[in-house]
Computed example of a mutant assay.
Amino acid sequence: MNIELFKHVYFRIPILLRLLITILLVIFLFGTIIHFIEPKNFPTIFDGIWWAIVTGATVGYGDYVPLTAIGRIIGMVLILTGGGLLTFFITQFAATTVQHENDLSQGKVAYKGKEHIILVGWNERTRILMDKILKHNAKAEIVLIDQTVSQMSYQHYPIHFIHGDPTDDYFLQKANITMASKVVISADNRKGEKQADNQSILTTVAVRGNNRDIPIIVEIMTSNQIDNAIRAGANTILRPNDFMSALLYQEVFKSNAKPFETVIHLLKDQQFHHFKITEEYINQPYLEVFITLKKQHYLLLGIIRNDKWIFNPDYNLKLIQDDVLVTSISWDN
């Protein structure tokens, strides 16, 4: 029973650790035996272990040498067993390292970190997003879940890749969804807009089912699926079609301006910040609040009142309770 228990535990240990334990046991055994056989040449067990390591590794410093016939026989057995074990351990270690790197690039390795950002779907948008995140914070941890890419080298893209279906709990758990800080779900541009939205909503449901509190940002292509995405658990809905249509409208009717470049550079250098009006700003004119916030490095762009967005209002407009201030601030602040 004890032997069966030993086999049950021993053979479940990873092979590298199992080899290392075996080598240590062999070295300790031979070092102890040689100490008792030739106590004059090997005064302590530690001296015997040192000799066993040097002999098993075929280094042969010669500072400790067995002189008796039995001692030399033990030395020969050690060379044949210990040397083989060490060589096999080094070979296995190298093979395991290469295999682990291959598994990483093929998206087979589970992620063990926390406070990471999960990107769902690999396309040009997520690639640019990845670059911007790492430029803003070089230490940011990013995990990508995608089933269209079969391999992704860490040397080219410094992110942890999980190859699989993001609607499957198994792959979400491999990405350590419960410890992530945020999820960004990008629409699959290989599919039609309706199919892409259905996939994004299904992914949102799966993510929310595994983590009730994580912020989920979802890209939705068609306006009639926005409510479904919110019901599924999305916190933020991105509508690229509406955004691009507004830019195209600006480009068609622009007057000595570059709307697209203006928005891109604004988003590059500034981050938007919304917050409800505080007591000190209630009944204050818009201009006074603008100046006060500017001293705090916030640029007041407008307000949201009764779900209506008002940009660049009259400077005498009095702010009221429940107004939401729309501001921008530098990424450096």
Rank of each mutant, 00 (worst) to 15 (best):
H116M: 05
N123M: 01
N123S: 11
E124G: 14
R125M: 04
M130E: 11
D131M: 10
K132W: 05
I133Y: 13
L134E: 06
H136E: 13
N137A: 05
K139D: 15
V143Q: 00
Q147F: 10
T148L: 10
S150M: 05
S150G: 07
Q151Y: 04
Q151P: 06
S153K: 13
Y154M: 08
Q155Y: 10
Q155I: 08
H156G: 11
H156F: 11
Y157D: 08
Y157C: 00
P158T: 08
I159D: 06
H160F: 07
H160Q: 04
F161M: 05
F161Y: 12
H163Q: 02
H163S: 01
G164H: 11
P166F: 08
P166K: 06
D169R: 08
D169Y: 06
D169W: 01
Y170A: 09
Y170H: 12
L172M: 06
L172N: 01
Q173N: 13
K174Y: 13
K174M: 15
K174L: 11
K174N: 10
A175Q: 01
N176Q: 09
N176C: 06
N176D: 08
T178M: 02
T178G: 04
T178D: 00
M179Y: 11
M179G: 05
I185Q: 08
I185P: 07
S186D: 15
S186M: 12
A187L: 01
A187K: 02
D188N: 15
D188V: 12
N189C: 04
R190P: 02
R190K: 08
Q195M: 10
Q195D: 13
A196C: 09
A196Q: 02
D197G: 10
D197V: 10
D197E: 11
I201P: 09
I201S: 06
T203C: 15
T203A: 15
V207F: 04
V207E: 07
V207W: 07
V207I: 14
R208G: 05
N210S: 09
N211G: 10
R212F: 05
D213K: 14
I214Y: 03
I214E: 00
P215K: 10
I217D: 00
I217N: 06
I217R: 08
V218H: 02
E219L: 04
I220L: 05
M221N: 09
T222L: 14
N224G: 03
I226Y: 07
I226F: 01
A229F: 05
R231F: 14
R231S: 14
G233P: 00
G233L: 01
A234H: 09
N235Q: 07
I237Q: 06
I237A: 05
L238I: 14
P240C: 15
N241D: 13
D242K: 11
M244E: 11
M244N: 12
A246L: 08
A246W: 00
A246K: 12
A246V: 01
L248P: 05
Q250I: 00
E251S: 06
E251R: 12
F253V: 13
F253H: 15
K254C: 07
K254D: 07
S255W: 12
N256K: 13
A257L: 14
